[in-house]
Design a binder for these strands. Sequence first.
DNA 1: CTGAAAGCGCTTACAG
DNA 2: CTGAAAGCGCTTACAG
Lengths: 346, 346
Amino acid sequence: MATTIKDVARVAGVSVATVSRALNGHTNVTAQTREHVMGVVAQLRFVPSSAAQSMITRRTHTVGALLPDLHGEYFSELIRGIDLAARARGLHLLVSSSHGDAVEAAAALRAMNGRVDGLLVMSPHVNADFLWGNVPDDLPAVLMNTRVAGGKHSSFAVDNLGGAYAMVRHLVERGHRDIAFVAGPESNFEANERLRGYRAAIADLLPGLSEHVLQGDFTQESGFRAGSQVVALTDRPSAVFASNDAMAIGCLSALNEAGLQVPQDIALAGFDDIPISRYVNPSLTTVRARITELGGLALERLASAIEEPGRISAQHQTLRADLIVRQSTAAPSSPSTLPLRPPPAA
Amino acid sequence: MATTIKDVARVAGVSVATVSRALNGHTNVTAQTREHVMGVVAQLRFVPSSAAQSMITRRTHTVGALLPDLHGEYFSELIRGIDLAARARGLHLLVSSSHGDAVEAAAALRAMNGRVDGLLVMSPHVNADFLWGNVPDDLPAVLMNTRVAGGKHSSFAVDNLGGAYAMVRHLVERGHRDIAFVAGPESNFEANERLRGYRAAIADLLPGLSEHVLQGDFTQESGFRAGSQVVALTDRPSAVFASNDAMAIGCLSALNEAGLQVPQDIALAGFDDIPISRYVNPSLTTVRARITELGGLALERLASAIEEPGRISAQHQTLRADLIVRQSTAAPSSPSTLPLRPPPAA
DNA sequence: CTGAAAGCGCTTACAG
DNA sequence: CTGAAAGCGCTTACAG
């Protein structure tokens, strides 16, 4: 059995109240008593149960993060952003990956109840509204890159639509007319927004030309498969826009294996600006999804909501998604002569 | 205020004991009572406090992971390994990054007390023995890639020394005689083991030739700096062995920027086999540190220790670190004619 | 089958 | 300054 405050009290010959006060640095304890108590604490190697403490103080100093996955650079960056902000505020982190399964997500949320002061939720698959049934009404929560229906919780999202639109515009400006798009998972909110941005841009900027969508699922492997499909096409596009960097990198491998040079033979772009993207060869043109910042901002907002319950009303903030031009995009080998509408003013 | 079991009992007109039984699926409740109770539970949107539950059941179904950092592909892979194994066992994950600071690590550990059933600890900087003062004696714990002094806790470690040795042997077999080594942080256990492996191999395989150690700190930036130093040398080594992949990738950028081709002008190797390493160009020769597996194994062992306290004695297991040869290493431009001792039998 | 009561390990008014 | 007691939200023998 682990040592409890009672053991300390007994050995020290004082009440548990006194031990508690000594431990928590309250002033109403004699220096002498305090020293004695702390001696026993050290001797017994007593360390208080944070669980019991937070049961009574109603503060866990912990936030829960429900993410669809923990794997890969995207989530690594996100967790980093959350962690940095959390540690700056003295908050601990309970992470959980739901893997897109609603039942698992619900279980994870229930398990967090009573163990966290608030929740950070990224739920691109599961409708967030469903989630609130698994958590008390008054638990502060902030959503990240998640479809927002109700207005109760604050949310942060990157401008996926605008970022995808800007990327297509960039490719069009470089002279591309046949731009393939590698989509993310079908029911994924962010994937859908990026697809919408692509479609809108094609419709606006290349009127009369058609879309070209390949199905992917945000994994490197699916990007590789998409790349292989592109290689096999008789009427090959001059540019591939993969809707995240992981797929772009997988695609790059497939193109390279087939002997195609990027960007000479075919242009390639991604989305997210994960750290690797500048280290692959050629470095990857992409859209900065400001992942770390997103995590940090969400945590800051959550911390505020925890500190001042009810004080802050829900806010929905959209982060700009900037185009990052690197080596992987360039003019196509055979520039088109189609007329190009001027891009809309920024 | 959040709804409690008392609220449910009151509204349902039964005792809290009955609510508890209905909730936990005990058999000794009438179907009718159960349904009625569950109806109220749903109506009040009651979700039990996991904290209170675990206070009494003495099971949190949560494990804590104390890691030096959460950032980058290495930790992403490690967390993934832990997470996969944990979710397979129905365990949740409380993560904490200590950033190498002993005081922060201690605080993190104290905060975990009472909230976890066991601990996974990677502490390359802080002596693990120091840590045990911040946690009850009987809390199960498993160490990963950490210097082991006492024998109380099980540990898993990759064969850093052997892996580094094997890499040097590979480079020597490819004809390299001047092999620079980019070291990790000075007080880091794994960094030191890898350095020892390099030194032992140089002494064994290239007798009379000297070591060439550049200081790094496991970050990409430090690898870039080391690469810049190498470029500036009048007597440039024919191969660079960076002691982790992140530094190798940074180094690659520096070499490329200086107009050096890898592997034609200079060979380059890393350590860890993080996922990117096969996607950089040229793909990176490295040593597989089996990160995901390490995390999974450590969690399995911890879970066993939790299930059967005292039943399992401490075990120390070392994982093989295999050489992964890719494109970034090749024969040097001017092969040496020095005699080469045959490599020791595998 | 159901309820009253004790207890998990703490903290904090309330007395003294 | 110190202690006895109540209570945080639950679960589980123990009675009935």
